[in-house]
Amino acid sequence: MKAGSKLKSVVCDTEVMVIRASDVVVECGGLPMSEERPAERAAIDPAFAGGAKIGKRYVDASDALELLCVKSGQGALAVAGVALQLKDAKPLPSSD
């Protein structure tokens, strides 16, 4: 995983872009995400079905990993079974 790379869910439409990379395996809907979308979708784990929302940022507890959701889906993002947290937006005034 490196900053700028994209990860796709194997259970739903969710896609994320890595903003800050960390040496972990990111899961979506209970299964590891992958760089390629599989030909057939796996089943979503109902414990990880809270969804990921386009444009939102997700971080792990140590704040080492940061992901930007670039496509919404039903699966929730997690690392080693621990759900990622939604990062607060700190809006800046528009300068363009």
Binding site: I54, L68, A89, L92
Partner: peptide, 16 residues
């Protein structure tokens, strides 16, 4: 862009 703008933060009546 990612560092300064929040995605879809504008309401539909906003125009630049």
């Amino acid at each position: 862009i990612l560092g300064t703008v929040e995605f879809a933060s504008a309401s539909e009546d906003e125009a630049a």
